[in-house]
Amino acid sequence: MTTARFALLAAAAFSLPTAACSQAPSGNTAAPTQTATPAAGDAAPAANVRYLSQPLVKEIYTADPSAHVFNGRIYVYPSHDIDAGIPDDDLGNQYAMRDYRVLSMDRIGGPVTIHDVALDVKDVPWASKQMWAPDAAYKNGTYFLYFPVKDKQGIFRIGVATSKSPTGPFKADPQPMQGTYSMDPAVFTDADGTSYLYVGGIWGGQLQNWATGTYNKDAGVTDLKQDDKPALMPRIARLDAGMKQIAEPLKEVQILDEQGKPVLGGDHDRRFFEASWVFKRGNTYYFTYSTGDTHKIAYATGTSPYGPFTYRGVVLNPVQGWTNHHSIVQVGDQWHLFYHDTQLSGKNHLRNVKTAPLTFNADGTIQTVEPLLK
């Protein structure tokens, strides 16, 4: 797909007008430890666009939020968007992020702190570029930051870094996690203390290159182009006790339709694209993910962290912008959805993180969140 077609798809999906903006976004009421101001002159949506939620911070651009509650405080581990002057394309080269900044708050709606750089690509010995969506976990006094970044050969691998503080700085291991590939790491820890790593993303996430379990640089530009066959599925592996390596080879996570058959590659409203996020409510495991070019956050449920998961519906309808990436966390008695859009910039690669309450029906289904108000 050409850059022009990419732009047309984004415009068609959201139909949101933009207008020139001569000022950078205004500051948040938080007291950040360090801030970076986006460049002036970004496009911004017209004044008549109404949003369900407002950005958590405005001093920097953030995306792909992974939210956690550690010791009663909410921590969000997002991507840190920057403008590298790279045109939009289907493989995401415009997303040229170089470091991570952690956000934290005492409560939803309270002041948000932007912490100092948690990890920089220059401090990861094996990495080259594109520090995309991360996740975090905690065990036995150590915080773990899981991150995707391209190695010196341009292949996405999953790295791990550790710190005694949830906000870093994190020290990266000298090599990527053995046996890992693609992007969007998400760690789920079950009630018995066992942790699982989920990874995967097609198109720029390179999952199509690993369809056989071995990297093939010629295996499709964006996906396998097999609409009548089972879609590419995300991957899962149990983490070992040290949380730095997988204890088994990555294997497919099956997403099934209502008839118990694998969702097909041509079913773009339901097939997996990227952004795995797993949580457990009662005895039910929820596998949530982005459908990519149809711009939805969908969900499926199962009885095991390995799946299979049966498609149930949509968590979040399309936001303003091309990407849709999220996390879901319980804070007290309320579940919250964290997501991003492009309210501040109007540009697909300069996003801002938001949050909204998530409501479950009595049967465990999720009420779809509408990010844009009519």
Score class of each variant (00 low, 15 high):
A4P: 00
R5E: 15
R5N: 09
F6H: 07
L8M: 11
L8I: 13
L9M: 15
A12T: 01
S15W: 03
P17A: 14
A19D: 00
A19Q: 15
G27S: 14
N28Q: 10
A40M: 02
R50D: 06
T62N: 07
S66F: 10
V69I: 12
H80G: 00
I82E: 06
I82A: 03
I86P: 00
I86A: 09
D89N: 15
D90Q: 05
R101S: 12
R101T: 08
G110I: 09
P111Q: 12
H115S: 09
D116V: 04
V117N: 10
A118G: 08
V121D: 01
K122P: 01
V124W: 02
K129C: 11
Q130R: 13
M131K: 04
W132S: 11
D135T: 15
A137Y: 01
T142S: 09
V149W: 07
A161V: 05
T167G: 05
G168T: 05
P169A: 14
A172G: 02
D173P: 00
P174E: 13
G179I: 11
G179Q: 03
D184Y: 09
T189R: 04
T189A: 09
D190G: 07
S195T: 04
V199C: 10
V199H: 03
G201C: 05
I202E: 02
G205E: 06
Q208G: 05
G213I: 12
Y215S: 04
N216A: 14
D223R: 10
D227L: 12
P230T: 12
P230H: 11
M233V: 10
A237D: 03
R238V: 13
L239F: 08
L239Y: 06
K244P: 00
Q245P: 00
E248K: 05
L256G: 02
E258N: 07
K261Y: 01
V263T: 05
L264P: 00
L264R: 08
L264H: 02
F273S: 14
R281E: 09
G282V: 11
Y285F: 14
Y286N: 01
I297Q: 13
A298M: 09
Y306V: 06
G307E: 08
T310M: 12
G321L: 08
I328K: 01
V329G: 07
G332W: 03
D333A: 15
L337I: 07
L337A: 13
Y339D: 08
T342N: 13
K347V: 14
N348F: 08
L350D: 02
N352H: 03
P357F: 13
F360Q: 03
T368C: 02
V369S: 07
V369T: 13
P371D: 12
